[in-house]
């Protein structure tokens, strides 16, 4: 991978993660972050410049998509979601949202 492509990929990765973390819904947020990480990890070893370029374009489209979808925040009602990375009765308050 050439140097400009490398920095481009890294900045795209960071942007995708930042935007994914803005999903108001717990499940979408987790999925988006995980999917972005796994996709970059899976394609880490690709060296072919045309493939890299195609993947970058796809990544940019995904970034735009996430940005569009995240802006539905203003439609959301704050509601508490029971989430649970602790024991059975340790309850965490997560704010989540329902699209109306």
């Amino acid at each position: 991978m050439s140097a400009p492509a490398r920095s481009q990929v890294i900045s795209l990765y960071k942007l995708l993660l930042t935007e994914s973390k803005k999903f108001p819904s717990y499940n979408y947020r987790n999925y988006a972050v995980r999917r972005v990480r796994d996709a970059f990890r899976a394609n880490r070893t690709i060296g072919d410049p045309t493939t890299v370029e195609r993947l970058i374009t796809e990544g940019q489209q995904t970034l735009a998509l996430i940005q569009r979808q995240v802006t539905h925040t203003h439609l959301d009602i704050e509601q508490r979601l029971l989430m649970t990375d602790l024991g059975p009765f340790d309850i965490y308050y997560y704010s989540t949202s329902v699209w109306q």
Partner: peptide, 21 residues
């Protein structure tokens, strides 16, 4: 009140953001 977590994906599934988009 807490919103229950969803473990009933055979009944129906939430829409994927890509689909809504």
């Amino acid at each position: 009140e807490f919103r229950p977590l969803y473990m009933d994906f055979q009944a129906t599934t939430p829409m994927d953001p890509r689909v809504l988009d």
